[in-house]
Amino acid sequence: MSTVNLQISERRAQRAGGSIGRRSAGLFFVLPAVSFTVVFFILPLIFTVYMSLHDWPLLGDHKFIGLDNYSALLSDRQFWNSLWFTTRYTLLITPVIFILAFVLALLVSLPLPGVGIYRTVYFLPVVIGLGSSSLLWVWLLHDRVGVINAILTGLGVMDRPIIWLADSSYAMTAIIMSVVWKTVGFTMILLMTGMQAIPAELYEAAKVDGANYWARLRYIMMPLLRRTFALALILSVIGSYLGFDQFFIMTAGGPQNSTISVVYWIYKNSFTNFKLGYGASLSIVLLVILVILSVIQLRLLRDETSY
């Protein structure tokens, strides 16, 4: 009896030792990724938290002030305005990107000749930097030399050119148009890849059962795309909340400070007003908000399906 017991415990010990070996091998393999994350994310994050507890001017010495930056932030009206503006921008742009990207993904998934060209064309703006594309749109929207005003007046949609970036609602529309143009290709590729991963047999089986195109779309494709939707949604929402270049270049926060996004406000505090400590505290708050939003989205789109 006792020898049996011994044998068992020896085997257990061997197994355990083996798994420690495997674990350390695993650790070894993820080491590059972990060290990258530590150096480029964890350490800067810790330093940002440290800075946020200081009065830290860009020039001159810094001093510890505890949570003063955070309490100042609570009464910073522009910060809350910017947060609300960024939320509104995210709520407006996300469905536009999604619907358009979904339709484009459906179209470029069709087995038609030359469809590869369309995929490339729709994806092309993604490889341009957001800064360059914003500058491009400033000129496209220009009232004297811009092609968009020329087309709209030429078609008789408007009598005279619009100064897009001088009016807050037009400015928002203009920024959304430029960012959708720039990013829709990326979401399209994500969704298309998701669509292509769905096994053809499922559609065939549904077809045999008499499901038409719309039913197959609704009851097979949409549920199975859930994971892809979650990924694309999180990337899109985070991207929108972190929006900066388009506001900095196209409107500089105007007209009448109506398009100041949160990151733009962080930038302004840090590099226009030279208050690095305050900028750091704003960044930490934004990070917390983004983590909460991402967790909510993941929960909502949690997917138990497997195929």
């Binding site: 004297r144 100064i163 897009w164 970036l165 001088a166 400015a171 270049i249 409107t251 500089a252 007209p255």
Partner: peptide
């Protein structure tokens, strides 16, 4: 002054 002046950053 041309209208575009208003939005020129």
């Amino acid at each position: 002054i041309p209208p575009s002046a208003q939005a020129d950053t």
